[in-house]
Design a protein around this nucleic acid. Sequence first.
DNA 1: CTCATCCC
Length: 372
Amino acid sequence: MTADLPSAYAPQQEAALKAIAKWMKGGGDQVFRLFGYAGTGKTTLARRIADDADDLVLFGAFTGKAASVMRQKGCHDAATIHSLIYRTKEGDEGGPTFTLNRAGPASKADLIVIDECSMVDSDLGNDLLAFGKPVLVLGDPAQLPPVRGGGFFTEAEPDVMLTEVHRQAADDPIVRMAMTVREGGRLSLGEFGESRVVSRRTLDPAEVLDCDQVLVGMNKTRRLYNNRLRQLAGHTDPMPSIGEKLVCLRNDRTKGLLNGSTWTVQALRPPPRPDTIRLDVVPEDDPALRRRAVDIKVLRQVIEGSEEEIPFSMRRETDEFTYGYALTVHKAQGSQWDKVVLFDESYAFREHRARWLYTGLTRAARAITVVV
DNA sequence: CTCATCCC
């Protein structure tokens, strides 16, 4: 674990640590909900809790990407919840099927810590609790709930809610914008530090090309903007060229591929089949972590974002990537970039519009441009 | 004027 933990905590964080310590002695509820908004120091507490525990602690998250972020924060062997509780069987037509793995990792744990718990739906949440183990869930209730099944953990009241934004974050324009949106407010046009809110008419395309990640709401917009950004960069071939940005669409543990991770094309290899391309790609988000390129094979129709159903036998033999200049906020949940351009399509998400915008805003670590 | 995950 990391050693650079702060020696002092804010009063709210101290109280949270006490409440969790008491819960861990047992006799109470199976689940402890530690919720907190962006900038409230949830991560710090999660690390501390993990450090203090003597027993066998398992770390999990809904997506492979979120589990990877957990590992980077020092949570050893953090894995997907699926891999902790399920055994997979190859389905006839419908891809993999999951059955409870009663003797699997979750059955041996003394404590299970789940991060980004707003992503967990009711099916997975119920199956996780079926192991009867104490589960500490960390999450942000202002984030988007799962598409189906509802936010199993975040629909209930928290045991501890961290609301105090720590000092350096309180001055951060991104955190302030996120707070405004969470409280039901609207963003006003203007500049806020390095961040800004601009109208579509006054947007400079150069700014969009310059950012680390473009985020949108709808897949229709994502495809449109990916095409536009490729055009602006001078790419005419429908297949990727060297230097282009791709996003991975399916985990592959042995190859180190995470759904939602972004990559840069480093080299083109001869196509193995007329319907398939072969590329070397390097990770975009953590280039220091792993320099080595990964050799991938992708069906042309997957790159092109074809809606057609591809047989599972065919999908299993290939990797899944498409253009990653623009991503949906849903896809980006669990990821962060320094400079983000966010096209506000919150109107499309009705009752979840504030959560959509909040989730989009909090994907930016340093600067955000919101296009309204 | 809707979004999506999981495995080997």
